[in-house]
Design a protein around this nucleic acid. Structure first.
Lengths: 154, 154
DNA sequence: TCTTGTTTGTTGACTAGGAAACTATCATCG
DNA sequence: CGATGATAGTTTCCTAGTCAACAAACAAGA
């Protein structure tokens, strides 16, 4: 339909390409925003998850966030070092740890949430209300059909 | 509108969150597909760009792909090592190099394009034709408004 | 109980990319 | 011409993940 038979499809012919492009841009913009508060996007995500689930085992977080346990282990370590998260032993099962937010960590969540709100709003401001809703709906459909990790949370 | 005033917005309240989720899933699926051919998603992207633009300077590629010149430098090196890309000196300006696909590299593009087609089709099969078109349109709008690098290509 | 198997989390080796310092080349203006 | 500044790529250091090997703790059956 487009070109003579010899031209292979191009990058921009694929929805996945645009998806990656836009997704990267959103994340980068958000990364910039939260870096002013001294955290990364992954750290925000971790803290927000804990906010609802604490105290929670690393493996649960890994599942919710779609990261490996190795990644969670290191992420938790960074947050502990920053004084935003604390690790406690579990008396019943000493393999399992229990992670929770520190007072400081918990206090930071609403502020970061505000930044996230603002970033999202600014980025998708180019869309009409209807387009935005449609986009949301489609993304959720795709996520559900694919049984992507990190489902609910809230 | 959602909860009482004290609950900060959650991760899943943001479109950017779902975007990252879905985008990662598409990319991962595609990464698996192309890895069978011994290349990564970034390498495919690089090769596909060169397919249309060769011979091309690294800086141009960096611009098209939205990567830093450092990243391109390393990416090119990997592809040269794999025998898929070659680097030539530019007689006029010896700072600038000219990158092109080798015969093997060029030959691989149509096959990889087929894999990309299939991956995209499978992933978005959950959508109706209309939804798919809408999604495409919205993503392109967002990309353009944000003046994202890596515009046309084809 | 003890042994075998499973689960939980950590660690190390590796990959990929960004930021900034660095090198080499070119351009320009005195 | 020569100095100064701009430009093209490379390199180094850092962050952030994966994967696979691992150690510690638990579970369950002989």
């Amino acid at each position: 339909m487009s070109q003579p038979r010899t031209a292979p499809s191009g990058l921009t012919d694929h929805t996945g390409y645009w998806m990656r492009m836009v997704s990267n841009a959103v994340s980068q913009a958000f990364a910039r925003a939260v870096s002013a508060e001294g955290v990364t996007v992954a750290e925000w995500s971790f803290m927000r998850a804990l906010y609802d689930l604490e105290p929670s085992a690393p493996s649960i977080l890994a599942d919710k966030m779609g990261l490996t346990k190795g990644a969670i282990s290191k992420l938790a370590e960074r947050l502990v070092a920053k004084g935003l998260v604390e690790r406690a032993e579990n008396r019943d099962d000493r393999r399992a740890h229990r992670l929770s937010l520190t007072r400081r960590g918990r206090a930071a969540v609403p502020l970061l949430a505000t930044l996230a709100d603002r970033n999202d709003a600014e980025f998708f401001a180019a869309l009409t209300r209807e387009e935005h809703e449609t986009l949301d709906r489609i993304l959720r459909v795709l996520a559900e059909r694919r049984d992507l990790k990190a489902i609910p949370l809230d």
